[in-house]
């Protein structure tokens, strides 16, 4: 799994570390980590609906923040649990842009083993960095 939950920080909330060989892979992994906080089995999320969304920011780390926040927004606004299928990240004129395609379905407690709702992505210790082997992020979610 390209992400793991961190036990010893942010006791009442959920902290995770996500990895990717490429920045795009990291975005996908971090998206799954957000969903896996709410749903025990990601495999239970079907692919009835496809959603395309776009986020942008001048800073790459805040692009990730906006991208994850969008998944949290869609969970409430459209009652959707989503898995990101592909992301393409580009830079133009000092602005980063992420175009994502995600699939998923409406929340159904009978089908999806639910855990706790993610209220928001926090900026506490929020980190995105390039490592020798790829990319790494640390994110704390408000539960």
């Amino acid at each position: 799994m390209p992400y793991r939950y961190l036990e010893h920080i942010a006791t009442a909330d959920v902290a995770f570390e996500a990895f990717g060989d490429t920045i795009e892979e990291l975005f996908v992994a971090a998206g799954d980590a957000v969903m896996n906080t709410m749903v025990e089995e990601l495999a239970s999320i079907g692919s009835e609906e496809t959603v395309a969304f776009e986020t942008e920011h001048t800073d790459l780390d805040l692009l990730l923040y906006n991208f994850l926040s969008e998944l949290v927004f869609l969970k409430d606004a459209r009652c959707l649990l989503l898995r990101v299928k592909s992301v393409s990240i580009t830079e133009d004129g000092g602005k980063f842009n992420a175009k994502a395609i995600a699939y998923g379905e409406k929340i159904n407690p009978k089908k999806h083993p639910l855990l706790s709702d993610v209220k928001a992505v926090t900026l506490h210790r929020f980190t995105l960095e390039k490592t020798d082997t790829g990319w790494r992020a640390v994110v704390i979610l408000d539960i």
Binding site: L62, V72, A77, A120, V121
Partner: peptide, 17 residues
Amino acid sequence: SRGFGHQVATDYLQIFL
């Protein structure tokens, strides 16, 4: 305040930043 409050805070965190 459910998703509404969560979004208000998320929005303004970015504005303040």
